[in-house]
Amino acid sequence: MDEAEVRRRLLQLFKAKVCFRPRFGYWELRPTPAAAAGTPDLVHPSTTPLLDAALLLQDLHSRTEQAVLLHTYSPITGERLCIGAAGAHDVRLRRELASAPRAVDRLRRAPLDSDAPGLVMLAYLAGHDVPLREELRQIRSTQVALTKAPLPGWILVSVPVRRLPGAPAVPGAEPRVVAAVSILAPAHTHGDPLVAYGRLMNSAVQTAIGSSVVISQPRFAAAPAA
Rank of each mutant, 00 (worst) to 15 (best):
W154G: 06
R94D: 02
L125T: 03
R109A: 13
L156F: 03
H61I: 06
L70P: 08
A180W: 00
A88L: 03
S114F: 12
V104L: 09
S74K: 08
R94Q: 12
R137C: 02
D115Y: 07
E134V: 14
L107R: 11
S114D: 14
H128G: 15
V170N: 08
P75Y: 02
L119N: 00
V181A: 11
V178D: 01
H89E: 15
P150M: 06
Y124N: 03
R140G: 02
G153S: 08
T72Q: 13
P150W: 05
P160W: 00
G87D: 03
R106S: 14
Q66A: 12
V181T: 07
M121G: 01
R92W: 04
A100W: 05
E134T: 15
V68Q: 12
P111K: 14
L69D: 04
R162E: 09
P117T: 03
K148D: 14
V104D: 03
V161R: 02
E96G: 02
R109W: 07
S62P: 00
G172P: 01
R80G: 14
G87I: 05
W154T: 05
L70E: 05
L156E: 10
T64I: 07
L107S: 09
V130H: 09
G118P: 08
G166I: 04
P101L: 07
P117V: 03
A149Y: 05
E174M: 14
H61P: 02
L56C: 11
V68G: 10
C82R: 01
I139F: 01
G127W: 05
A123Y: 00
T72E: 10
G166C: 07
G78M: 04
L164R: 09
V68F: 06
L136F: 02
L119I: 00
P168N: 05
H89C: 10
S62D: 11
V157Q: 00
P171Q: 01
P152Q: 09
D90K: 11
V120N: 04
L93W: 01
G172L: 02
A110K: 12
L70K: 08
I83Q: 10
V68P: 10
L146A: 12
D113K: 09
H61S: 13
G153Q: 08
L60I: 11
D105I: 06
Q143S: 15
R162P: 01
R133G: 13
R102L: 13
Y124T: 00
P111Q: 13
V144F: 01
V120P: 04
M121R: 00
A88V: 14
A167K: 04
L151N: 04
R80P: 02
V130I: 11
R137S: 12
S141W: 07
D59S: 13
S62C: 08
P175R: 12
Y73R: 10
